[in-house]
Amino acid sequence: MLTLTGDTDGTTLTITANGDIDLSNNRRLAATVAEHESADLATIVLDLAGVDFCDSAGLAAMVRLYRAAALAHRSLVIRAPSENVTRLLEITGLDRVFTIEPASA
């Protein structure tokens, strides 16, 4: 089960994900961003600290978010991906595409 929460702070939207991102729920990422859409939005942060599993559909959802953000002149930041998700990003080369932030100290 995936839970997503969105919080806007000025020009930054932080989406916090908990659970697995997979074929059954990946489209909810874009829906959650759309719910919090605003003209002032400059950065979308996808906090993945609570995500242990992500399949190819989840990766595709992140790529779609990245492309949509770029088209809107926004940045997408992947924050605190778990070891499993980090490995997946590295294997696919997406660690060189996305801006990835480590967990806050």
Results as ranks from 00 to 15, higher is better:
residue 77 V to M: 04
residue 81 P to M: 05
residue 53 F to P: 12
residue 74 R to W: 04
residue 54 C to S: 03
residue 55 D to S: 09
residue 75 S to E: 13
residue 68 A to G: 07
residue 99 T to V: 15
residue 57 A to N: 08
residue 95 D to A: 14
residue 101 E to H: 15
residue 88 L to Y: 05
residue 46 L to A: 12
residue 73 H to C: 01
residue 60 A to R: 15
residue 11 T to Y: 00
residue 74 R to L: 06
residue 56 S to K: 09
residue 28 R to T: 09
residue 27 R to V: 01
residue 8 T to I: 15
residue 82 S to Q: 09
residue 76 L to P: 07
residue 96 R to H: 13
residue 38 S to N: 08
residue 67 R to S: 09
residue 72 A to E: 07
residue 60 A to M: 01
residue 73 H to K: 14
residue 7 D to A: 13
residue 34 A to S: 14
residue 56 S to Y: 06
residue 97 V to A: 06
residue 24 S to E: 14
residue 42 A to G: 11
residue 12 T to S: 08
residue 6 G to A: 13
residue 103 A to W: 02
residue 47 D to K: 03
residue 36 H to C: 10
residue 76 L to N: 05
residue 40 D to C: 03
residue 59 L to S: 03
residue 70 A to Q: 12
residue 84 N to A: 15
residue 102 P to W: 05
residue 3 T to M: 06
residue 45 V to F: 06
residue 56 S to M: 09
residue 39 A to S: 14
residue 93 G to N: 03
residue 77 V to T: 10
residue 101 E to Q: 15
residue 105 A to Y: 02
residue 43 T to Q: 11
residue 85 V to G: 05
residue 72 A to V: 00
residue 74 R to Y: 05
residue 51 V to Y: 02
residue 48 L to G: 12
residue 7 D to G: 03
residue 24 S to G: 13
residue 64 R to H: 03
residue 20 D to R: 14
residue 91 I to C: 04
residue 41 L to T: 08
residue 4 L to D: 01
residue 83 E to Q: 14
residue 100 I to P: 07
residue 72 A to W: 01
residue 95 D to N: 15
residue 51 V to N: 04
residue 91 I to Q: 03
residue 97 V to Y: 00
residue 98 F to G: 09
residue 102 P to E: 11
residue 85 V to A: 10
residue 77 V to G: 06
residue 12 T to M: 04
residue 34 A to Y: 01
residue 57 A to I: 02
residue 93 G to C: 02
residue 41 L to P: 09
residue 72 A to F: 00
residue 97 V to N: 02
residue 10 G to P: 07
residue 58 G to C: 10
residue 41 L to K: 03
residue 33 V to W: 11
residue 57 A to D: 04
residue 96 R to F: 02
residue 87 R to M: 08
residue 13 L to N: 11
residue 41 L to V: 04
